[in-house]
């Protein structure tokens, strides 16, 4: 057992690609063999489109989690942005409505970030409060009604194709590339690792930790809002219950992708792998006609298993006392 774990440790040191991709590829291979339709282009693009919502939120969540924070309010922001973007379009036009929706996400991110920074209350509690409050806001605003997009261009967008791929898949992949670049190549992105990895050292080195975290909360707010809007274009509508439990799915994807809850480690590539793993599992099991219920059990089990393996791999060679 220890031997295997040690060799796993070595393996993870050699590979540049986050280890979750092994799992993702194994799943893809498995479903290619066991089902007839999995490997068809149409199905693969389908997966991309289906995962784009959680995927977009996960991009932002990765950044705040690398910071050592968390955002539980993303699901509620999804509903708020979708409701605003759909509900306002007959009054102020589609594009301004979309802008308001995105703006609401960024503004709530700013609010969350400022509270975390200035009050020193843990992000978990701050965003748990926001999650409840923003959902209330959505219900108050919508009067518990679903809104339907009157602008058909809006709902057409969600179903449209560009260069042979669903447009939403392009949106997701495009932002993935952008965020990968931000996290690997920009000063802000690199500082995110410093803040999460050793906050004291980051402060001592003159990184403005508070402002930095606020920016990241705005990033995740933006992505949650964007995900809400893309989701509502797919549905041609918004409902006040949209995005429930999305925070849980997003965190699952990000943790599967190798981002640590304690911060300081993680990557956009890993998150992409985690998002796709969930998407492929859901899709593949659907094709195998496994009832959706089993997928929930399997995903929960996989999340815990990944946590366990990760801990074993990281602990191998540590000399700390297990107290």
């Amino acid at each position: 057992m220890t031997k295997t774990l040690q060799s796993l440790t070595h393996l993870s040191r050699l590979t540049v690609v986050p280890p979750i991709w092994l799992f993702t590829l194994a799943c893809a291979l498995f479903f290619t063999v066991t089902t007839d339709n999995f490997a068809e282009i149409g199905n693969l693009t389908n997966i991309l489109q289906q995962t784009s919502t959680i995927g977009l939120i996960a991009l932002g969540m990765t950044v705040v989690m690398i910071n050592g924070n968390i955002d539980l309010s993303v699901g509620a922001v999804v509903a708020l942005a979708a409701s605003l973007a759909v509900g306002l379009q007959s009054d102020i036009g589609t594009l301004p409505a979309v802008a308001v929706g995105l703006g609401s996400g960024i503004a709530l991110g700013f609010l969350n970030g400022m509270i975390v920074w200035k009050t020193g209350v843990d992000a978990f509690i701050v965003t748990l409060g926001a999650m409840i409050g923003v959902r209330g806001l959505v219900f108050v605003y919508t009067q518990e009604q679903s809104f339907f997009a009157m602008d058909f261009a809006y709902s057409d967008f969600g179903m449209s194709q560009t260069l042979g791929l669903p447009t939403l898949a392009w949106v997701f992949l495009g932002f993935t590339v952008v965020m990968h670049w931000v996290m690997t190549s920009t000063v802000h992105g690199r500082n995110a690792y410093a803040v999460g990895g050793n906050r004291e050292a980051a402060l001592n080195a003159g990184i403005r930790v508070g402002r930095h975290m606020v920016v990241n909360f705005m990033i995740v707010g933006f992505f949650a809002a964007l995900a809400g809007i893309t989701l509502s274009t797919q549905m041609g509508a918004s409902t006040p219950n949209l995005g429930r439990e999305y925070e849980l799915w997003t965190i699952t994807a990000v943790v599967l992708g190798g981002t640590k809850l304690t911060g300081g480690a993680g990557s956009i590539l890993g998150t992409l792998g985690g998002v796709l793993a969930i998407g492929i599992l859901r899709n593949g099991m659907n094709l195998m006609q496994v009832p959706a219920f089993y997928v929930l059990v399997i995903l929960g089990a996989i999340l815990i298993a990944v946590l366990f393996i990760d801990r074993q791999v990281n602990r191998a060679g540590s000399e700390e006392v297990e107290a």
């Binding site: 849980l248 997928v295 946590l307 297990e322």
Partner: peptide, 18 residues
């Protein structure tokens, strides 16, 4: 097993639902 309780119970949330 000393696993992080947030993630464990999150996974359990999904599994029990299933």
């Amino acid at each position: 097993l000393r696993l992080n309780s947030l993630i464990v119970t999150l996974g359990m949330l999904s599994a029990i639902q299933g």
